[in-house]
Design a protein around this nucleic acid. Structure first.
Lengths: 154, 154
DNA sequence: TCAGCGGGTTCTAAATTGGAACTTAGCTCG
DNA sequence: CGAGCTAAGTTCCAATTTAGAACCCGCTGA
């Protein structure tokens, strides 16, 4: 399977990965959540080559994750801002953070901690069931074909 | 920055991506959660080349995400099972599913739905604050340096 | 004894990445 | 006036990674 065929699969994981599933993209998005917006800042902070950065930003703008907007004219300068669709990637970033904190911290504790301004506490983001609000365990979940699969295996 | 330097960064996102952050790895893990365990099954289901599959499985076993165990001898046959560390990736997979369901469903509805056996309901996994149990919004969160960062910027 | 299976390895060609140099347009300093 | 600086890229070549197919090995069942 080629990379471009990925978004045609009837699987939300594959479709999501077709947008954000490469080496650099999630690091770019991580920095965007830390308020980085400019080409050169991404370049300097990430150590990514300009070539690759340029192509990823283009792809993410096309995908609707970033919006490219001029923050000045003369000379024209642009910034990249997360759209609503991009902001919705936050749970994925926090999922990555949570796993890294738990399994890759080298015994030193988490490098970054999160504070929830709404309730004024340090928070440990947790994935729960929308119905019973209990934390989810993979062994207690069952995957079933949904409506988006209907016409595929008919 | 090279791929191998990624896990040395004082960032849990980077460290997590050093393990699961490439094209195929998350698809392999997705299928593992759907109970795929054998080399040839991964190969057939994913359309991944054997070369890449072999190298990814090796890497994931080294990282402690999968455990390689013989399920028969004569001839020796192996299966790959998620460890506790691997099972802990579930929130990330569900995060990817959730985003794909919301933004990439092509108007047809989700291809796969999840049923929570504990409470007997179809569920929409949700990321909430561990303290106030409200869903998290990136605009209401603040990232702060944690203990794992101390010695780096001293 | 020979076809088939599970679980790989090896090979070559094509695509992607890294790294450095170059471009473009408008400042700003002397 | 011209030299150098800045932001945001593009172009080029070499090195790495991937795709795809072929091959291998130990064992089995017919």
């Amino acid at each position: 399977m080629k990379w471009q065929e990925l978004d045609a699969q009837p699987c939300s994981v594959a479709r999501t990965l077709s947008v954000i599933g490469d080496r650099w993209t999630l690091l770019i998005i991580r920095n965007a959540f830390l308020r980085t917006r400019r080409f050169d800042d991404f370049h300097a902070q990430l150590g990514i080559t300009k070539h690759v950065l340029s192509s990823r930003l283009k792809k993410l703008v096309e995908a609707g994750v970033f919006e490219k907007r001029a923050y000045q004219e003369k000379p024209a300068r642009y910034e990249y801002r997360l759209t609503e669709k991009g902001l919705d990637l936050y749970p994925i970033i926090l999922g990555l953070v949570g796993w890294g904190d738990k399994w890759m911290d080298e015994g030193k504790g988490p490098p970054v901690e999160y504070f929830h301004k709404t309730c004024n506490h340090k928070t440990q983001p947790t994935l729960v069931c929308s119905e019973c609000h209990e934390p989810l365990d993979p062994r207690e979940m069952m995957a079933m074909p949904g409506p988006g699969l209907k016409d595929v295996n008919s």
